[in-house]
């Protein structure tokens, strides 16, 4: 059982570094959202910044890859995003086609290089 729970200290870290910093934005959205006009400039700007931040998170995973992704050469990681995007556009915005095409590109490239 202790193997299942591990170190209680790690669970406190999860709460402080993971749960609270993440949930605070959802609860802020709930508390402030009611008073915000959906078409307002302020919300428009917040949305644009949030989208650009999400894009930054995507770029970070590709530029500084975690775990096993680090074993894939950079040009394959970026190429996979490009290939997936092409498929996404050609299929008139199918998320599934984009994801599958990007994955195939990366795996095929890795297989050819091996």
């Amino acid at each position: 059982m202790s193997e299942f729970f591990g170190d209680w200290h790690a669970l406190v870290v999860l709460l402080l570094a993971g749960v609270i910093p993440n949930q605070i934005w959802r609860m802020l959205g709930l508390w402030l959202g009611g008073g915000l006009d959906e078409g307002s400039d302020l919300l428009m700007w917040v949305k644009a910044v949030a989208t650009a931040i999400l894009a930054g998170v995507i770029a970070q995973i590709l530029v500084q890859p975690p775990g096993a992704l680090a074993s894939v050469p950079g040009f394959l990681r970026y190429g996979a995003l490009g290939a997936g995007f092409l498929a996404f556009i050609l299929t008139r915005r199918s998320i599934f086609a984009g994801v599958v095409c990007g994955e195939i590109f990366m795996l095929a490239g890795k297989w050819l290089l091996a």
């Binding site: 910093p21 993440n22 605070i24 934005w25 959802r26 802020l28 959205g29 709930l30 402030l32 959202g33 915000l36 959906e38 919300l43 917040v46 949305k47 910044v49 949030a50 989208t51 931040i53 999400l54 998170v57």
Partner: peptide, 11 residues
Amino acid sequence: SAIRLFPMVVA
């Protein structure tokens, strides 16, 4: 990374 959740909840 979680700031994006704010406008999502508002939407």
